[in-house]
Amino acid sequence: MVFLKRTLPLIITFSTGIIMILAFFSGPDVPKLKSLEDEVQKWTQIIFVFTMVLGEVSLLRLNLDKVSRKVDGWGYNLVLVIGFVSMTLLGFIAGFESRIEKGQSYWWIENALVNQKFVTVEGVEIDKDGNATVAVVDQNGEKSTTQTTKLKGSIMAWFSSCEQVVFDGVFKAAQATMFSLLAFFVASASFRAFRVKSKEAVLLMGSAFIVMIGNVPVGNFITELFSKIELGPFNLGFVDIPALKEWIMTYPSSAAQSAILIGAMLGYISASLKVMAGVERSYLGGEN
């Protein structure tokens, strides 16, 4: 059992790791090995979907558990579950394509809420790339071509519209508003940062300020204003906010980002070597 639970997974990790490295270094003379590089990445994509399913089930279980135990605020958890189930059903059904047949009528959907028209299929053609193009005629007799994915039967079109309503009305609206809320928290975040450590906060906020005003017309306006200021023999014309912003992004900021990437990659590579060699085994979880 120990072999199955621990040794075999370690052997799998080591051998797949070595195969991937060999696939990377193999030239065009070994096409089967070279093709593994792309193919196995597609496999991992498929596995990630199953992993996501596992995560989604955990989220659902966690919230259903709170609902069943009626903890404080269980109504919100119920809202989450209802949102999840309804969007899953709508997205699942609306995503399927209708079977296209000559002479039948369908809804041609460009945008499920604002651009739908009823058309009749005149013929289907498959081009040399394997893509299907459909010739359609609308109720005014106007002929055009479209893709099969854009044509839906009445029920599917209704589901598509419902999905679009929830997507635009909840997903897009909530996403944009929740992220835009952060704009209001800049002040409190800055205040707390200055309270913690003023020197570092000055550097951080100073560069943030220059980047912000360098991106908007006010930056040019301030630059112009400075060029008109004469302080005795000194002229402040050399202060160019947009150029300063560019300089910050290209030199000090870029230096730090390079270092972050180099540091992260070195850490990542050393951790990968440890995993492949079987030194680091925490990813296998548990004691056995």
Binding site: M178, F179, L181, L182, F185, V186, S188, A189, S190, R192, A193, V196, K197, E200, A201, L204
Partner: peptide, 15 residues
């Protein structure tokens, strides 16, 4: 890294 951490946490509170 207190300064960036405080800023990130304070701004991420609604999220």
């Amino acid at each position: 890294m207190s300064v960036p951490a405080v800023i990130a946490l304070e701004m991420a509170k609604p999220l």
